[in-house]
Amino acid sequence: MSLSATFIVPGDPGQRTGGYLYDARIVDQLRALGWSVEVIGLEGRFPDADGTARRSMEQALAAVPDGQAVVIDGLALGGVPEAVTAQSGRLDLTALVHHPLADETGLSPALRTRLLASEARALAACRRVIVTSPFTARRLGVLGLDPRPPAVIEPGVEPAALAGPVADRLAGRESGGCERLLCVASLTPRKGQDILVQALAALVDRDWHCVLVGSTRRDAEFAARVRRAIDEAGLGARIECVGECGHQALSAEYHRASLCLLPSHYEGYGMVVAESLARGLPLISTTGGALADTAPADCCLRCAPGDVEGFRSALQRWFDDGALRHRLVRAAVGRRNGLRDWPAAGSAFSAALREVPA
Rank of each mutant, 00 (worst) to 15 (best):
Val157Gly: 01
Arg180Pro: 11
Phe349Arg: 12
Thr52Val: 14
Ala117Met: 03
Leu170Cys: 10
Ala304Leu: 14
Gly41Cys: 14
Cys300Phe: 01
Gln29Ile: 09
Gly89Trp: 12
Leu75Pro: 04
Trp318Thr: 04
Asp73Ile: 10
Thr286Arg: 05
Leu212Asn: 02
Ile230Gln: 03
Ile195Trp: 00
Arg31Leu: 14
Tyr266Leu: 13
Val272Lys: 02
Cys303Ile: 04
Arg317Phe: 07
Ala249Pro: 10
Pro147Ile: 00
Ala102Glu: 01
Gly234Arg: 07
Gly234Lys: 11
Pro159Phe: 03
Glu179Lys: 03
Arg45Met: 15
Asp194Phe: 00
Gln59Thr: 15
Ala220Thr: 02
Gly34Lys: 13
Pro150Val: 13
Leu140His: 06
Ala53Leu: 03
Arg90Asn: 14
Asp205Ser: 11
Arg128Lys: 13
Glu355Val: 11
Val197Ala: 12
Leu170Arg: 10
Glu275Val: 02
Leu111Cys: 09
Met271Pro: 04
Ser186Lys: 02
Thr85Leu: 13
Val131Thr: 15
Ala117Ser: 11
Ala202Tyr: 12
Glu221Cys: 07
Arg45Asp: 12
Val213Ala: 12
Ala161His: 12
Arg325Phe: 04
Asp320Glu: 15
Gln198Asp: 14
Ala229Pro: 03
Tyr254Pro: 03
Phe222Ile: 00
Phe7Gly: 01
Ser56Met: 05
Pro282Phe: 05
Ser264Asn: 04
Val356Gly: 03
Glu232Leu: 08
Arg55Ile: 07
Gly306Gln: 10
Pro147Ala: 03
Ile230Arg: 01
Glu275Ala: 03
Ala161Pro: 09
Leu181Arg: 01
Ala249Leu: 12
Lys191Gly: 08
Leu143Trp: 00
Arg312Asn: 08
Arg128Trp: 08
Leu145Ala: 02
Arg227Lys: 10
Glu158Met: 14
Phe319Tyr: 11
Glu58Tyr: 14
Glu82Cys: 08
Val273Pro: 05
Ala304Gly: 14
Leu116Ala: 02
Ala60Arg: 04
Ile239Ser: 04
Cys183Asn: 12
Arg312Gln: 12
Gly51Trp: 07
Arg330Ile: 06
Ala290Phe: 00
Gly246Ile: 11
Ser175Gln: 11
Pro134Glu: 09
Ala237Gly: 12
Asp207Gly: 13
Gly236Pro: 06
Leu116Tyr: 04
Pro47Thr: 09
Gly322Leu: 11
Gly78Phe: 03
Arg16Gln: 06
Leu107Glu: 02
Ala151Asp: 12
Glu253Cys: 14
Thr85His: 13
Asp168Lys: 08
Ala5Glu: 07
Asp341His: 10
Arg16Cys: 02
Val64Ala: 08
Leu250Phe: 08
Arg325Thr: 09
Ala237Glu: 13
Arg45Phe: 13
Asp23Val: 12
Thr294Lys: 05
Leu75Glu: 00
Pro134Cys: 11
Asp321Lys: 05
His99Ile: 04
Gly106Glu: 11
Pro65Gly: 09
Ala5Asn: 09
Ala125Trp: 06
Ala124Asp: 15
Glu275Gln: 06
Val157Ser: 00
Ala163Asp: 04
Pro149Lys: 01
Leu145Tyr: 01
Ala53Tyr: 00
Ser108Asp: 12
